[in-house]
Amino acid sequence: MRRAYFKFSWIAAALLAPQLLIVFVFFYWPSAQALYWAFTLEQPWGGGNTWVGFDNFRKVLSDAYYWSSVRVSVIYALATTVLAMSMALTLAIFVDRQLAGYKAYRVAIIWPYAVAAPAVGLAFQFVFNPGAGLFSYINTIAPGWWDLSKYPWQAVTAIVIAGAWKQVAYSFVFFLAALQSIPRSLTEAAAMDGARPLRRMMDLQLPLLTPTFFFLLVINITDSFTDSFGIVDTLTGGGPFRATDLMVYKIYADGFRGFDYSGAAAQSIILMLLVMALTFVQFRYIERRVHYT
């Protein structure tokens, strides 16, 4: 720990105050508020909130719509993560060979990170649009076969592909950085032992990527729970028949369209616990990653 300090004074307090105030007002207070709402119910004719214990949670957990929202969120999380990470890993391993055009490839894979989620949603809505998009070909042969606004599985496929597309760049940056931090001496030693590039990929690079892999796995799943709002909102709007009503989207819809603060708060608490659990796992792997490299 540091030995040379400045003495604590009003300066330190003044430097800490802004961030602490903001964190208190916009993080801790709302979170406490969510807890309060989750365990109380607002009276219809005023008179404040009454304590209802776990009733809100019971109501949420016995709601079939909620469970279908959980189900589609899990499907979305797993499918986008698997798609995005496998694509990112493949691209990173081959970009890392640093052939001609390496820098061009790299920048061409990275830039989608900068595209806003609703823009991704809107662009993919055009791409998947039954009348004018990619699948209009199929629809000219079999009219009405592809229609996002009618068939739930197609809508889910669409948000999964859009979500995965957006996530590739992030994982790619990390995979590439991890690959480039593999010591050259290791690669050279393997080459001297007669390992050709493909053999080195399988036996040297992939095993050394494991920590990055686990780290990205958790980050991607967490992100898909929280960052999916923009994509869903512009691509499907939660439909058809609530088929793409992801958890974050449902909290928003219940809270701001249905004015069911208690129900939305209970769902927020559940999602918070989920994110916390995932973040906790992530920290364990971050630690492992530090030891590993």
Partner: peptide
């Protein structure tokens, strides 16, 4: 506590 999960409060 990302913004999305505590959006209503």
């Amino acid at each position: 506590l990302p913004l999305e999960v505590r959006i209503v409060p």
